[in-house]
Design a protein around this nucleic acid. Structure first.
Lengths: 213, 213
DNA sequence: GCGTCTATGTTGTCGCCATCAACATAGCCC
DNA sequence: GGGCTATGTTGATGGCGACAACATAGACGC
């Protein structure tokens, strides 16, 4: 809430605002979480941050730009979460299950935020996603890749550690399955007759499928 | 284009409009395909259909309702496509690869339409998706379930044909993987160093993973 | 200290939108 | 043939995104 800018005055109304950019991202994030949608107006975000309806344009080119920053924050949170999980478990196959389940849980904790991270608005026409998003997403993906490489080196997974294409397909398959399941679950398309241990069961289906037997 | 209403007059300006509901869905579908987004206005849809900006409200409660109809049409098209593919191949494992690849291709042919089918707007708060959508999605899912059941009965897949939970997990795992890959590919998150036979390679990873060996 | 520069924030404005309400019309059924 | 109802149209209202013109407060040279 309070500013932490270098050289900011102590108790006054802080600077111009303090750190409006940050406040706007926070406000947008809160709105995404509350409304489970990002159809809210930029003006509403500005209102939340206590500034005029046009102040955001000093920090973001447009609404999409702001949402991109929100998505970016999501990728960072996801990556750090997965990194911790990957380090906690020594066995590569169990580590893969752990980050798979953790990934899905992350998505289900804030469905709209997760959806936003992969939302159509951010792909920006046919030019592909902006570089910053690609980078942030790549960071999360790399955690998965590390674990798979670890398992391949240990001879646990069905890919030679030096076969980049085979490893790439494994990474993509794994990512696709957890990504897809996360979305199917939040869309309530999984069917209700199944237990709520679905994430783990599916993750084990994945791991058992790529394990050397 | 021409009306097919019972008792419609022959050559005149047909009835009030003919079949506005259908025209609106078609116009919206065209807009989704063109703009690869559904941020267009309801008024734009009305313009395309050649009616006033308020006419759509006689057929749809609001914009979301119209988009729901568009999504529904997507599920129907997907289901019929998968049904054909599933019937074309006798061997269950190859049939699964075929519908997996066909599924992904369907999504990539019209990314925005595919995304809309699973879009957040349609989940309607925390009450879950409307019944019509659940039904349409279930139809597509059932094609997958049929093939997996076929393979289980043939002893090709790692699930007993009478173990509903195991089969359910297999269905969900398969759906999740193709769904996830479809979205990752359209988000350009798959990485560019990989060949464009990715869909088939991933589908085979899936099938090899659940095949009895 | 002081004047200027620039980043940041505000006010005002425009065209557009979703949605509601009131009104018009045309095919239908008795 | 006359009312009924489904379907379309016209006309608001409040809000929004984006732009432009203006205001202000720190920064920085002197």
């Amino acid at each position: 809430m309070t500013p932490s800018r270098p050289g900011a005055s102590e108790s006054r109304q802080p600077y111009h605002h303090g750190d409006l950019r940050r406040s706007l991202v926070d406000a947008a994030l809160a709105l995404v979480a509350e409304e489970q949608d990002w159809g809210f107006s930029l003006r509403e975000v500005a209102r939340r941050a206590g500034v005029s309806h046009n102040a955001p344009y000093n920090h973001f080119a447009d609404k999409r730009d702001l949402l991109g920053a929100v998505a970016n924050a999501g990728y960072e949170a996801l990556q750090s979460r997965l990194t911790v999980l990957a380090a906690l478990t020594a066995a590569p196959d169990e580590a893969l299950v752990a980050i798979g389940v953790g990934y899905i849980r992350f998505g289900l904790e804030n469905p709209a935020h997760y959806r936003l991270m992969f939302g159509p608005e951010l792909v920006a026409g046919s030019g592909g996603p902006p570089a910053s998003l690609l980078e942030a997403a790549g960071g999360a993906k790399s955690v998965l890749a590390e674990v798979l490489l670890r398992g391949a080196r240990a001879g646990v997974f069905k890919a030679a550690p030096d076969d980049e294409q085979a490893l790439g397909i494994l990474v993509l398959s794994s990512w696709a399955m957890v990504h897809g399941l996360t979305l199917l679950l939040m869309d309530r398309l999984a069917g209700s007759a199944l237990p709520d241990s679905i994430p783990e069961l599916v993750a084990r289906t994945l791991v058992d499928g790529i394990r050397v037997r």
